[in-house]
Design a protein around this nucleic acid. Structure first.
Lengths: 338, 338
DNA sequence: AAAATATTTGCAATCGATTGTAAAATTATT
DNA sequence: AATAATTTTACAATCGATTGCAAATATTTT
């Protein structure tokens, strides 16, 4: 019933050698003859040996694992990011553990404790919308666990970060609307504690300034950027009678929600109101009119962040922290082309 | 620099008691006085102690972790599933490790080895499209690791399974098209090694039979069900001049690809060709016309599967395997309503 | 108050793999 | 062939927490 798994000691006994030799053989150490290695490998396969990583990791006091904290994996951006992370991790022999905060600080804290208990070697973090301080993440620094932020980083922390140039992207997106003739542009913004949303807001503002359009704080609508938020806010926009003719949304979901309401209200897109989103969710290519948006190349972000982390891991943290900023691409589609 | 993490021995030394007492205190054993427990807990917090799960797990030779293998997390169905799994796991104190096979058998095999090495207590599996035999999964049975399949199961294995009634759903979807007046209905099918696709095909066939519509194998198009496949196959359908007036797709992505081609070719949906998908991806509500589809309640599947697994874990595998089949819901939208 | 019982605590082995160092076996040198 | 140098293998400690059992302490019973 309880078939206990074979250990190196079994192999050692069967071959009449010491378990330490078996261990070294399995690890392809140069301290062991090829002949012995062959014997060991053969026997290991024969009895179906599988290294107990718990024991190995305990002894080496590292888990060979990279922990990843993301708000939620169902967002296309984050699942692309994870694909990039896995790619980089696997080519360097690391495993990846993914955890979702579901945008809740509470869950994020729990994950941190968990990762520390399980001795992940390093962490990649994109914080939740509720996260305002790095207090709970400090524990990683205390335990000497390198941490790299990606996309959603916290300010005033001494960690490497891989970001996209949200400011530039948002500025471009807004200027694109202006080029298309929009004069009164609203902005759907996210929680202002997150730098990415602050930067997107700033890009929007500066684009207006550069084009001599007065900024009106009443045209900035903050929310959690759910689809329903966009829907609701579009309703506000329509009812406001402010002659708004363009919407720059800080994500695609809210933009899509807004489009839904606009279409229901027979507001023509882009003729009456042009809409641009952010993140290039697959949905945005499918909706009609197709939504212009900013592609964040999540795969690259993940890969780069993971490589940064691995560098720091291989150098025992003796590496300067750095910030990599990628340039996103504005994808122009029917929702803005007029 | 290398701040080593505190252990129970540190705590023991500081309090002048034995580490075994500390261990018991931290585990809230009834063999320890409340007074001692308080002392230990206080000191533990004071020095920032965090249990080393590697050591704990090694000693107990279990990891308190449930491994999950899914084809890819970016599919809405699977990310809902994972949400359900995490919910069930966390309420029972288990951790969850997610791994994506990316529909590749090779990766699936690698993950299996990995899970065994890391001594996951149990596994939840939805196999890749390439998986035809359970050979590699047999290793879990050999090592006494309970396994529960969900959604994509393998035939002829003695494991619990949580499935949806694909046959019934597909039959319903097809009959719905027939009710809408479709006479010549095509089916976009998936890899025939997977039971879910076989059942969906069978449901389609039987719906025709029940309604005295002759089955024509030339109207069944098999593919990997990517969006591009749908796009390509729709083209074939149009060019075939077979007067096809309905499409039952085995997933939403292919249905959406097909719709794209149909719309480009000025084929009206649903007037000329009605389309129904499968899985209720968020995209399907956004596309125009909105895509009728089958909702699989992924969250429930995940939760039920995980609870089954936990039952078996708590009873040391001494529990009969069972198959739970959920009834999915057909969501009727504009792509079929005429 | 002594004996018997019950409650706490400490000792030491254990989980399985790794690794520094010593011992043994092999090869090279004179 | 004897010694030195080198390679290969074995011994034993270690990683940190857990746990059966014995020892010590506290409580109850007579």
């Amino acid at each position: 019933m309880k078939k206990s798994k074979p250990t190196i000691h079994e192999i050692a006994k069967l071959l009449n050698i010491d378990s330490s030799t078996v261990s070294r053989a399995l690890n392809d150490s140069k301290l062991v003859t090829q002949k012995t290695k062959d014997k060991v490998l053969k026997k290991a396969k024969e009895i179906g040996y599988q290294r107990n990583m718990l024991a190995s990791n305990l002894r080496k006091s590292k888990s060979n694992t990279i922990g990843v904290i993301v708000p939620r994996i169902s967002r296309h951006f984050f699942s692309s990011t994870i694909a990039g992370i896995e790619e980089a991790a696997y080519t360097h022999g690391y495993n990846v553990v993914i955890a979702q905060s579901m945008e809740k600080l509470e869950r994020e804290k729990r994950i941190v404790g968990n990762f520390i208990s399980n001795r992940v070697d390093g962490v990649l973090v994109s914080v939740s919308m509720e996260t305002v301080s790095a207090e709970h993440l400090e524990r990683f620094n205390q335990t000497n666990t390198p941490l790299v932020f990606f996309d959603r980083a916290l300010p005033n922390v001494n960690n490497s970060k891989v970001l996209i140039d949200d400011y530039q992207a948002s500025l471009q997106a807004t200027e694109h609307l202006i080029e298309m003739g929009c004069k009164k542009i609203a902005h759907l913004s996210g929680p202002k504690n997150l730098a990415i949303y602050k930067n997107r807001l700033k890009g929007y503002k500066d684009a207006l300034k550069l084009n001599d359009i007065p900024f009106d704080s009443k045209l900035v609508f903050a929310s959690a950027l759910h689809q329903e938020d966009g829907y609701r806010l579009a309703d506000d926009i329509i009812k406001s009678k402010k002659a708004i003719d363009g919407i720059v949304s800080a994500n695609d979901l809210a933009a899509i929600g807004a489009m839904k309401k606009l279409k229901e209200s027979k507001v023509r897109i882009p003729e009456d109101i042009a809409v641009v989103g952010f993140s290039n969710e697959p949905m945005s290519a499918v909706i009609e009119p197709a939504l212009s948006t900013v592609d964040q190349s999540g795969y690259d972000i993940g890969k780069i962040a993971c490589n940064l982390l691995i560098d720091s891991l291989k150098n025992d943290g003796a590496i300067a922290t750095k910030t990599v900023t990628l340039s996103p691409t504005l994808i122009k589609r029917a929702s803005t082309l007029r």
